[in-house]
Amino acid sequence: MAMKPPNVPVIPAPVWRNFKELQEWEQLHKTRPEGDQHSQAFTSLTEGIHGFPGGFLVTTTADAFLNWARKSSIWPVTFGLACCAIEMMATFASRFDVERLGMVPWASPRHSDLMIVSGTVTIKMAPMLERIYAQMPDPKWAVSMGSCSNSGGPFRHGYHVVKGVDRVIPVDVYVPGCPPPPESLLNGLLLLQDQISHFRKTGRRAPPTPKVD
């Protein structure tokens, strides 16, 4: 008895047929001017409203509202580099549950607001890290998790280790520890929320927390 061949669905072609097209598309995005366009539009609008009597009340409230929205839906890109990533996963999991703070680990830098650099950054990995950070839309934040990404940590005197991820990307919160337990990372994320609630309408960052290492 002859078997009937199974009905195999036709898979549509991917949007980017090859790596070169993806690179060209990324180049297009890189040529975009520095800074967050939406924030700048908002700034000029608020400058206008400031001219009205009592207008500052409106802008302050709008700023507070937008920052509340920003800090209540931080989506960290899932970016685990080393053993700190295990603690990061524990933080994301049900026991510590950062989802109650509005944080959803998201597997795409295009939709993320936060990068948690969890682990040793090697010189070979640093360009990729920079690239993923560049792929994230503004406004964006970065948390340096653990001694390795703060300063190089126990591997500081290795030949291949970047001596602190702040040599590659700007960092907002440094979380000390080797590795930091989930409570510690959670504290860092709460500090970041606090920073975001003071996010300036100019798009400038709040000063980073003092570096502890």
């Binding site: 010189i123 640093a126 005197h157 290795g158 030949y159 291949h160 280790v161 970047v162 001596k163 040599r167 590659v168």
Partner: peptide, 17 residues
Amino acid sequence: HPLLKSYAVDTPYPPYR
């Protein structure tokens, strides 16, 4: 070649090291 004893591990490698 970094595992040679003559290799100085603090050789500058901007901006990473």
